[in-house]
């Protein structure tokens, strides 16, 4: 008998996926199943936290080139 598990399927680039896996490695509380290079199956109730963490992580790695502060 097959099993059906409730959750959220995430589709993303491999780069983003590796970040999520990295985030998961701390507590292993996000990912249910690593599906393929671009798909991850995660817990539904952890989605908001995961989104926030990812956002935070991207902020660290990506520094936008903001133009110089206004001189006015």
């Amino acid at each position: 008998m097959p099993r059906a598990i409730r959750g959220v399927m995430i589709e993303c680039e491999p780069a983003i996926k590796s970040i999520i896996i990295h985030l998961d490695s701390v507590n292993h509380d996000f990912i249910i199943e690593d599906c393929d290079e671009t798909h991850l199956f995660v817990k539904e109730n952890m989605m908001p936290l995961l989104k926030a963490k990812l956002e935070e992580h991207l902020k660290e790695t990506y520094r936008p080139e903001e133009p110089l502060a206004d001189s006015e």
Binding site: P2, R3, I5, R6, M9, C12
Partner: peptide
Amino acid sequence: RMSSTGGFLFKDFDSTDEYQAL
């Protein structure tokens, strides 16, 4: 950067036939 869809993952099928049918 990521799109998410809520739903259900089916796994642990007894046979290939069962998997393919469902």
